[in-house]
Amino acid sequence: MPILPSTENSLLVRTSFVDDESWADVLSVVMTENEDGFRAYVEVIDDPTWSEADCEQVRYAALATGEQAAVLFIVDNAALEPDYPVLVVDLLDLEHEPFRCIASELWGVDNNLNIANMDWEEFADMAQSDGIFRGFA
């Protein structure tokens, strides 16, 4: 696996290269400010050498960079489905199981976990029975 960049922003790593249109849509949703002016601050990794990499491979590579954000986002095959449920991976506590978050709510996970305003459990525990966090409302 290639080396991921060291950055203060969360990494958004593309591991599925089956649908370029859906990938572009995911990026558009993630990078667009919501009605309150918030958006996710991510470093986009769009490199085919990450094709089909699993969660643990990406997590390990992110941890090897030294400086990293608290959270990692992976756009795999499942994340290209409606609402774009991106895989969310904790980089601070390896015991935490990943969960999914729809792209339009990724800003809240990114912003709050990276400044330690909220805890992992506050998001993971609000994921619905399908394992997807869709917001607090």
Score class of each variant (00 low, 15 high):
M1A: 14
P2Q: 10
P2Y: 07
I3R: 15
L4P: 15
L4R: 04
S6V: 01
T7N: 07
E8F: 10
N9V: 00
R14D: 00
R14L: 02
E21M: 05
S22N: 15
W23R: 07
A24Y: 00
A24V: 00
D25F: 04
V26C: 02
L27Y: 00
S28Q: 13
V30M: 06
M31F: 01
N34A: 08
E35D: 15
F38M: 12
R39G: 03
A40R: 07
V42W: 09
E43K: 10
V44R: 01
I45P: 01
D47H: 05
D47A: 03
P48S: 05
P48L: 00
W50G: 11
S51T: 13
E56H: 13
Q57G: 15
Q57K: 14
L63M: 15
A64G: 06
T65I: 06
G66M: 01
G66Q: 07
G66R: 07
E67A: 07
V71M: 04
L72E: 10
L72H: 11
I74T: 03
D76L: 05
N77D: 13
N77Y: 07
N77R: 13
L80N: 05
L80K: 10
E81Y: 03
D83P: 00
D83M: 11
D83H: 15
Y84R: 08
V89Y: 11
V89R: 09
V89K: 08
D90Y: 06
D90M: 03
D90T: 02
L91E: 08
L94G: 04
E97D: 09
P98L: 04
P98H: 05
P98C: 11
F99D: 07
R100I: 05
C101R: 13
I102C: 12
L106D: 04
L106C: 03
W107V: 00
W107C: 01
D110R: 07
N111E: 08
N112P: 02
N112V: 03
L113K: 09
L113C: 03
I115F: 05
I115G: 00
N117T: 01
N117H: 06
N117M: 09
D119L: 15
W120V: 13
E121V: 12
F123E: 05
F123V: 07
A124Q: 12
D125W: 08
D125C: 13
M126K: 12
S129C: 03
S129D: 14
D130T: 04
F133C: 10
R134G: 05
F136Y: 14
